[in-house]
């Protein structure tokens, strides 16, 4: 018995609105399912094939290129508001394969596979000879810089104790000799208060987790080092902002503004 009509695919343009809709749905999918690193945005649709699907619908087989943005995946900032990591900052590209089902006008991802890779050092150096390159995240200077920065942040955040979740990016800056790091933390869902912590490993994460993200620079200087750290704690309604006067006595908790319920920890970009 002859087989049914061979399932033939159609090849729309890569820039067709329908193809772009499928690609955007696929990028939203990876950003909502990635557990570490940064959000990615659509840069180019490389290939598309559309297969009919029995009994209804169509499956878009896509190959797309993405680019890393500066928003951590835990950051509730909408993707449209996240800027793309620039080439001189050592950009990171993603290569993704997707199969996206279109049925009743809705797109749903059936399969997703992505690999990301940083731009080559030559490309960065060609554009900016003096720009720092990405450093291995387990580099001793990186690990030390994250440790110092998180300790400094904990020392300032009245009473809460945040634990490291992920070192997401690091660069060894030649001049001035310093280490730049970006990392995510979780907390203050631990049962430790910053001032009492002797062995962080003994702190247990409590149920109500909060996530946050820090950018820090550890600068080496004669006889010591300086750390500057800026952190944002992601609230459910998006990052809130409060600044802490670095000169204030950390032992004296900063009173939350009268309009902010005491229960909600309003912490945001804080320079230590």
């Amino acid at each position: 018995v002859p087989l049914g009509p061979a399932l033939a695919y159609r090849q729309p343009n890569c820039d067709d609105p329908e193809t772009e809709q499928a690609a955007l749905a696929a990028v939203d999918y990876i950003n909502s399912h990635m557990l570490q690193g940064y959000k990615h945005t659509l840069n180019q649709i490389d290939k598309v094939k559309v297969w009919p699907r029995r009994p209804m619908g169509e499956v878009f087989e896509l190959e797309i290129d993405t680019l890393e943005t500066t928003c951590h995946v835990l950051d509730p900032t909408p993707l449209a508001n996240c800027s793309v990591r620039q080439l001189v900052e050592h950009a990171v590209e993603g290569d993704c394969d997707f199969r996206v089902l279109k049925q009743d006008g809705q797109f749903s991802v059936l399969f997703a596979k992505c690999d990301s890779s940083p731009d080559s050092a030559e490309d960065v150096r060609r554009l900016c000879p003096g720009c720092p390159l990405l450093a291995p995240l387990n580099d001793t200077k990186v690990v030390h810089a994250v440790d110092v920065a998180l300790t400094a942040f904990n020392a300032q955040s009245n009473g809460s104790y945040f634990r490291l979740l992920e070192v997401s990016r690091a660069q060894l800056v030649p001049l001035p000799p310093s280490t730049y790091v970006e990392f995510a933390f979780a907390g203050p869902a631990t049962d430790c208060a910053a001032k009492d912590v002797t062995d962080p490993a003994k702190c247990n994460l409590l149920a109500e987790k909060q996530y946050g993200f820090c950018k820090a620079t550890l600068t080496e200087k004669i006889g010591g080092e300086d750390v500057a750290v800026t952190c944002t704690v992601f609230q459910t309604q998006g990052p809130d902002v409060v600044t802490v006067d670095p000169g204030a006595d950390p032992a004296v908790p900063v009173p939350s503004p009268p309009d902010v319920p005491v229960a909600s920890l309003v912490v945001g970009p804080m320079v230590v």
Partner: peptide, 27 residues
């Protein structure tokens, strides 16, 4: 047999459907 003089067929520019446009820059 009437032979149609060969008509130089100039292929119309093939619209390259893929890859699509680059939205930011190529790494």
């Amino acid at each position: 047999t009437v032979v149609q003089p060969g008509i130089a067929v100039v292929p119309d520019p093939v619209l390259r459907p893929c890859p699509g446009r680059i939205r930011y820059f190529k790494v």
